[in-house]
Amino acid sequence: MEFNFKEIFTAFMVLFAVIDIVGNIPIIIDLRKKVGHIQSEKASIIAGVIMIIFLFLGDRILGLIGIDVNSFAVAGAFILFFIALEMILGITLYKEDENTALTASVFPLAFPLIAGPGSLTTLLSLKAEFRTENIIVAVIINVLVIYLVLKTSARIERLIGKNGISIIRKVFGVVLLAIAVKLFTSNIKVLL
C-alpha cells in the first residue's frame, strides 16, 4: 500500500465536487421537510459502501461488456464536463425523478443523490489514474463530510445562505471542469 497525500486530496476534491453535498443542501432540506427525519448515519454509510463496491467491481462489470477503464474514463470525463456545466451555468441537463418514499435515507439520498451516476463514473475514472487505496481514503473522508453536512444541513443553510451555496457550487463547478479536461486528455492519449 502506497498512500499519497496528493492523490488522496485530488480524489477527495473530485468526488466532493461531483457529489456536491453542499450544493444539495436545499434538496436535503426539502427532503427532510417531506419525510420528517433523515437517518444521516445510514445514508452516509450506504453511499460509502455503494461507492467502494463499485470501485472494486465496476471494472469487472465493464470487462464483461468489453469496455476498458480508459474508455470509461473518457466517457466519465464527458459526464463530469456536463455536471460542471450544470454547476457553473445553473442549468439542469439531467434530472432524477423526485419520488420520496419512506426509505428516503437510502433512496433518493444515498442513491442516486450521493452515490449516483456521476460519482460512480468518477470513481472508475479516478481508478485509471490513482492508486485504489488512495481513492478509498478519499471516499471515506467524503463519507465523513457527507455525514457532517447531513447532520448540520439546516445550520449550514442559515450560515452560508442561498447566495453562499450558489457561489460554492460555481467554484466547485470550475474545478470539476478543469479535472474533466485533465481526465479526458490523459486517457485519450492512452486510447490513441
Rank of each mutant, 00 (worst) to 15 (best):
T152V: 13
V49S: 09
V106G: 01
E86I: 04
T92W: 02
L113T: 13
M13P: 09
E7M: 11
S186E: 13
V49I: 15
G161K: 11
I141P: 07
N187W: 10
T92C: 00
G164Y: 10
L55C: 07
N24C: 11
F107D: 09
G90D: 02
L183M: 06
F107W: 05
F12L: 00
T100E: 13
Q39D: 15
S125I: 05
L159D: 04
L144P: 04
I19F: 01
F82S: 09
L123I: 09
N99M: 14
R158Q: 10
G66S: 05
F82C: 08
F78I: 14
I91V: 15
R60D: 02
F130Q: 05
V190I: 14
T10P: 03
N4I: 08
L120W: 01
V190R: 11
A11V: 05
E7D: 15
I140N: 03
L183Y: 07
V174M: 12
R60C: 02
T100N: 13
V69K: 13
I19C: 01
S44W: 06
N163T: 15
I91T: 09
V171C: 08
L191E: 04
A138G: 00
E7I: 12
L126A: 08
V137Q: 00
I50D: 06
G161M: 07
V143K: 03
F72I: 03
L191C: 03
N70T: 12
S44I: 00
L93A: 00
E7F: 05
P26H: 02
L55N: 06
V139H: 07
K170C: 04
L64P: 02
L123D: 00
F81A: 10
E129D: 12
V69N: 11
L177T: 07
N142L: 11
M51S: 09
V190S: 14
T92P: 05
V137L: 14
V35H: 00
I179K: 12
K33R: 14
